[in-house]
Amino acid sequence: MTAARNQAPAVDGPGEMRAGARAGGATALPDPPSPQYRSAGAPSILRAGLASIGLELRAYFRTPDTVFFTFLFPVLMLGIFGVAFESAGEIAPGVTMADYYLPGMIAAGLLLTGVQNLAVDIAREKGEGWLRRLGGTPVSPVSYFIGKAGMILVTSIAQLGLLLAFAVLVLGVELPTEPELWGRFAWLFLLGIVTMTLLGIALSAVPRSSRSATAVVLPIVLLLQFISGVYLQFSMLPEWLQNIASAFPLKWLAQGMRSVLLPESFAAAEPSGAWDLGLVALNLAVWLVVGLVLSLMTFRWQRRS
């Protein structure tokens, strides 16, 4: 009897539990383990989280609509804008429309991958009961989010590489060569990833069901892109709309990316006439903390209803 009690099913991470539930339909799950079992038999948090990254990546790339709307969408939009405005010529000496739109598309890619993808994905898993099942296993929420964060990091880097390759090889964009600018790009990119990931987790608490997740998240993401200088030149927007956009992180992330990929003379087109990198870092850091606090306050293994 003691041996039978100790042979609990092993759970390597959230992806395997989801895969088993999907494959078997009404999969029988064990009763929630006791606290003693959780501390003694559960795999290490880090090992389970690292294993979850591969499972999350496989699930991500097996979903065509997710890959298109979060991974390929910025590349598609850059191609459309670069080709559509090609006849307009250079907007400044040595700067084409593709050059101008590239920074905004990089920022939008982080928004789509972090906020949109995570918010919809977690809301769907919560609404369909996958997280409730995971709550009855030894899997730690930390392991679950390591898997999610690792997936966001890998897909964001892959998306960035594809976007830059497309811009250079197809649209003829010339990237900067100064190490200082690439160092600036690195901290902007990493700070942007962490901020957007935490905001995506926090936003996942808003949809009331898995069916409403896309309808709730997509308009928010789309609106932010239009008012934050991604599709429209930020200086063209009315002042009141610029003030609204300045309250959100995408505007600052796009501004920081422009400071890396556009000539210094373009800083004059910003509202303050400068890149304001200190304000960029401050606003992203504030939203990082907001996302972290909201995630800790709102995340549950199941919907509150």
Rank of each mutant, 00 (worst) to 15 (best):
L188R: 02
A8S: 01
R303P: 13
S34I: 02
V83E: 13
G24V: 05
L282A: 15
R208H: 12
A247Y: 02
L111K: 00
P103A: 08
G291I: 13
M151F: 00
R184E: 03
V230K: 00
A205C: 05
P249K: 02
E270Y: 08
Y60F: 15
A245Y: 02
F69M: 10
G129R: 11
R5V: 01
L162R: 01
G229R: 06
A84P: 13
F166E: 08
E239G: 15
T63N: 13
R5L: 06
A3H: 05
L288P: 03
F299W: 09
A108N: 09
A42Q: 08
I122N: 01
L153A: 13
I152L: 07
A269L: 15
P43S: 14
S140Q: 05
V286T: 14
E90S: 04
L175Q: 08
A108Q: 09
I80G: 01
L76G: 06
P249L: 06
V142H: 01
A213R: 15
A23S: 07
G129L: 08
E178H: 10
G256M: 05
G200R: 08
T2W: 06
D65F: 09
A10I: 09
K126Y: 00
L46F: 14
N117Y: 01
I227V: 14
R300E: 06
V289P: 00
S156N: 07
S156K: 02
F299I: 04
L277N: 04
E264S: 10
F61R: 06
F248W: 08
E239C: 12
L223M: 12
V120F: 03
R58V: 10
P179R: 04
L232P: 00
P35S: 05
S87Y: 13
Y231I: 00
G183Q: 02
I53S: 05
F85V: 04
V286A: 14
L250K: 02
A42P: 07
V289R: 00
A267S: 06
